[in-house]
């Protein structure tokens, strides 16, 4: 069978199998426990019933996720350029970047609320913190992994520091940058959701998906909670898909990763 065909058929088959198992488990549960696992059709119904609040929450979370993500991309790129200058700079800054990554969000969140207030500001900063590390690490690695022979070529032709950076090191780092971007794209909606859950606010145009999750769980609306999880997954797919398209546009013409002849 042709591979493109299999590529669609196989995940579709796995999905159907999982849904079948889902219904089977639900069927096996005793009546008083059935509320623990709503079926896909119940979740679909909850999605429709709560469409207004969910779509508003999705919009708010997307806003936080996009802003935090873009901020992380811009800042990490600038920092990676500085870090790529010398290993002394990397040695001085890396431990603190690690600390930034280690800091637990649920501890940071109340502090952020104190500093910048609950709501979008905090959500953006939390998303930024979650996306930042994989971006800066991968981009820096890319910037310092330039082919030695190409660097030698540029030096022999007396390229300026600027030319060496922006004509050689930056394009050569693109594959690494996109590796970081893929990771960050999946983390961004989760970051925004966690941010919203821990530092969200219903003020203004209402909270995001995290805030909505708090409301549904306090109201014991379990189907709606599942619906919220589904929407978050879809948001993640949209982010990952957008980054895949960007990556394809930037790399497909020249990079070997798009032209594997094996497997």
């Amino acid at each position: 069978m042709r591979r493109p065909f299999l590529n669609i058929l196989l995940p579709l088959g796995t999905g159907l199998l999982m849904v079948a198992c889902w219904y089977a488990v639900r069927h096996a549960l005793s009546e008083d426990l059935k509320f623990l696992l709503p079926t896909p059709d119940e979740i679909w119904a909850a999605l429709q019933a709560n469409s207004e609040s969910l779509s508003r929450a999705t919009l708010n979370t997307s806003k936080g996720a996009v802003l935090g993500f873009v901020l992380a991309v811009v800042v990490s790129f600038g920092l990676a350029l500085i870090l790529s200058l010398s290993h002394l700079i990397r040695a001085s800054l890396y431990p603190y970047l690690m600390i930034l990554q280690m800091m637990p969000i649920i501890v940071i969140a109340p502090i952020l609320v104190l500093w910048v207030g609950a709501g979008l500001n905090s959500v953006v900063i939390i998303t930024f913190l979650i996306c930042f590390f994989p971006l800066v690490v991968n981009t820096t690695q890319g910037l310092i992994s330039t082919d030695r022979n190409l660097v030698e070529l540029f030096r022999m032709y007396r390229a300026t520091r600027w030319q060496e950076t922006f004509w050689l090191r930056v394009p050569a780092a693109l594959p690494y940058f996109f590796t970081g971007l893929r990771i960050a794209a999946v983390l961004a909606p989760i970051g925004a959701l966690v941010g919203d859950y821990t530092a969200g606010s219903s003020a203004g145009d209402g909270g995001g998906l995290g805030f909505q999750a708090i409301i549904y769980s306090s109201q014991a609306k379990y189907s709606a909670l599942f619906a919220t999880a589904a929407v978050t997954c879809i948001l993640g797919f949209v982010f990952a898909g957008a980054v895949n398209i960007l990556s394809w546009l930037a790399l497909s013409k020249w990079h070997d990763s798009y032209h594997r002849t094996d497997n």
């Binding site: 030698e152 032709y157 007396r158 390229a159 030319q163 394009p171």
Partner: peptide, 21 residues
């Protein structure tokens, strides 16, 4: 090694040395 920039077309690669100058 041919030391070509893989993200540039043949035409751009040929012009790179002049571009640097």
């Amino acid at each position: 090694e041919p030391t070509l920039l893989p993200w540039l077309t043949v035409a751009h690669n040929i012009e790179v040395a002049q571009q640097l100058r």
